[in-house]
Design a protein around this nucleic acid. Structure first.
Length: 227
DNA sequence: GAATAGATTGTCT
DNA sequence: GACAATCTATTCT
């Protein structure tokens, strides 16, 4: 067959084998609705070093202005969190503790400052590159366990702040492979968010969502039973 | 196994 | 000047 014209014309899409982007409406909902729906999807980053992808297994919803744990609490709007006020579907990346980046998915409609923090992935592609970036000879399940480790394993930093997650080098995809099925509701665990004790009653809300049984979830969702 | 401290800097009061 | 949507190693029990 010599029908190479169309092949030549089509730009190579390194993401195509992994899955397809989500439609804009997926992100234009409350962070409380989007958060559990992100579980099982793929976060992928294509850089000069190679393509890396992981299955999202742990997230947290932040819903300003009411939510006092959110950067947008009480309607706070600064240069740092400005992108939270944009339309859902882009990345919000910020620097914390002098050494870590955290990545969020902006949700809801323009003007509603909501986001979902991505806390952990199970490696799916580019495991060697992830391990190289993490340095240590870490276990596979731990390569992107925890928000700081996730951004480091995927080489995510300020440069990705505000970019579109459907069209950029950093994307979220619905997996094409049947070996990554949509998680059943009973496999989604709700628990309080991590590291927001300063937010009082808001810290007790179970706005963390994780996949039951995943070895990559950062903090065991259930407090250890006392015995 | 649980608790603690140190690293290190952008952001906001 | 205080502190943060963290991680790791170390030091207790």
């Amino acid at each position: 067959m010599s029908r190479t014209a169309s092949n030549r014309a089509a730009p190579r899409d390194p993401f195509a084998v992994l899955g397809r982007p989500l439609p804009p409406d997926f992100y234009r909902r409350s962070s409380l609705q989007v958060a559990p729906d992100l579980l099982g999807l793929l976060l992928c980053h294509d850089t000069v070093d190679g393509l890396v992808a992981g299955r999202i297994v742990e997230v947290e919803a932040y819903k300003g202005p009411a939510d006092l744990a959110a950067h947008s609490a009480r309607g706070r709007r600064t240069a740092r969190n400005e992108v939270m006020y944009a339309a859902g579907g882009c990345a919000y990346v910020y620097f914390i503790y002098g050494m870590h980046f955290c990545m969020n998915v902006v949700t809801a409609v323009p003007g509603a400052p909501e986001a979902v923090l991505l806390r952990a992935l199970e490696p799916v592609a580019g495991e060697d590159l992830m391990r190289e970036r993490r340095g240590a000879r870490a276990a596979t399940a731990a390569l992107a366990r925890g928000p700081g480790n996730l951004t480091r394993a995927l080489a995510i930093d300020r440069r990705q702040n505000g970019i579109d997650l459907a069209t950029s080098e950093l994307r979220i995809l619905r997996p094409a492979d049947d070996s990554f099925p949509r998680p059943a509701p009973r496999d989604i665990v709700r628990s309080p968010r991590i590291g927001v004790d300063y937010a009082g009653a808001w810290a007790k809300r179970r706005w963390r969502f994780s996949l039951r049984g995943s070895a990559s979830v950062s903090v065991p969702p259930r407090a250890r039973p006392a015995r």
